[in-house]
Design a binder for these strands. Sequence first.
DNA 1: ACATTAAGTGATT
DNA 2: AATCACTTAATGT
Length: 210
Amino acid sequence: MHEKLQDYFSVVFEPELLAEIENNGRLVKLKKGDLLIDVGSVIKEVPLLLEGAIKIVREDKDSHEIVLYFLERGDTCAISFVNCLNNAKSKVRGIVEKDSMAIFVPVKKLEEWMAKYKTWREFVIESYSSRLDEMIEAIDMLAFMKMDERLFKYLSDKVKIMRDPILHTTHYEIAVDMNTSRVVISRLLKQLEKKGKIKLHRNKIEVLEY
DNA sequence: ACATTAAGTGATT
DNA sequence: AATCACTTAATGT
């Protein structure tokens, strides 16, 4: 826990705060597919991501979903933190996208730290605003971009987050993430392959350009 | 060999 | 861009 914490957070947090995180947080290993938070749940612990990636998804009542943004190492979900200071329920779902490691810190502590540590305050504000930026980007994508552009952005985003140009996913999973049908995704992927931007395999997509 | 699941495709709306 | 109705290909038992 110490080393990883140092790796990603020692540049942003002062030593006392790092020590507090170590004393109050619990280290959790997360497996791909784990459900971190669901719509309607109240959060009492917030994760600081040491390694891996989390997908944040919005879901409607008919289980249509749309990906809002991804969390990476060094990130936290400030939205859910601020949200639970407000005693509100989560409006999003967080799913572990690849095997991850995180430190869970009780919200109560985080609240104390807001007053105590400047770096923590700045971190939360920073994180909140970049999450908001990403969400606005997601809205732009839905409102203004065509399916083929959306798909290519989805692929290149995912490559960046997974840190691997070979995506181990199916057409169906992409279709669910983008709230469209598998057939549409298959056709668009085929077009991208013809343009030489990707290479298709079973359960696997090689992204050549991103 | 057979069943299941992933992916490709034409036709229709 | 979505849906239907297949076909083909890859994989698991």
